[in-house]
């Protein structure tokens, strides 16, 4: 059921290498990849869940061998073609064929500060009432998109079918499993759920450790 990006708990990775705080970008092209991606987001042709899912749908071999901003650049190229903003021919030739009907949506320099400051809140009103309260015991369901096999979800594989307790209620938020497939916001209650490390791992480091995940109501079942 899982995709390559869902790597929480995986064995075999090496050490985490700390780096100094003033090192924001390592390469000049990293800056460009970030800026081009953010600027294209302003064209309004996809939402954050669509763009995340596009990166997750990279070939696992590519996802694994690409560095972080290569994943962004590859995801962006795929998004631009998928949304009909660019054509495969334009990518192959490296040149534009005509102007774009989206030209009026271009992010202008004088709007950058405003757009970045505005952000994109993910809370939405919902008719779905919260069925859990802080302190309730819950169990996660199997990971995966309920409607689309291999579709987007934010329930990681390592946290599936695990029992935990609700520690926070965040209000009603856009459901990525729907939004990533352009099926609407489908907002529903979102909770922070704490799961004991010993519930998740065969060899937990410490009996009192836990992992907290933000999980939508439809990811959860009550525990009697």
């Amino acid at each position: 059921m899982s995709r390559v990006h869902d790597m929480g708990g995986r064995f075999g990775d090496g050490p985490v290498i700390p780096e100094p705080e003033d090192e924001v970008f390592h390469e000049e092209w990293h800056k460009r990849a970030l800026a081009v991606t953010l600027a294209c987001g302003s064209l309004g042709q996809w939402n954050i869940d669509v763009s995340r899912h596009m990166r997750e749908c990279l070939d696992p071999v590519d996802y694994t061998r690409f560095s972080y901003y290569e994943i962004w650049a590859a995801g962006l190229a795929n998004l631009l073609v998928d949304a009909g903003v660019l054509t495969r021919e334009e990518l192959a030739s490296g040149a534009a064929q005509g102007s774009s009907p989206l030209e009026g949506r271009k992010l202008r320099a004088d709007k950058v500060a405003e757009v970045l400051a505005a952000g994109g809140p993910a809370d939405r009103p919902s008719d779905i009432a919260p069925t859990f309260q802080v302190g309730d015991r819950v169990r996660t369901r199997q990971a995966g998109n309920l409607v689309i096999p291999g579709g987007h979800t934010r329930l990681p594989g390592y946290a599936q079918t695990a029992e935990g307790r609700v520690v926070r209620y965040h209000g009603t938020h856009i459901l990525p499993d729907s939004s990533a497939h352009r099926q609407g916001d489908a907002a529903e209650p979102l909770y922070a759920v704490a799961i004991a490390a010993k519930e998740l791992w065969l060899h937990p480091e410490h009996p009192n450790d836990e992992v907290v995940l933000d999980l939508w109501q439809s990811y959860l079942e009550p525990v009697a």
Partner: peptide, 8 residues
Amino acid sequence: RVWDSTAE
């Protein structure tokens, strides 16, 4: 307590 940022 590890917080896995799975939502917004």
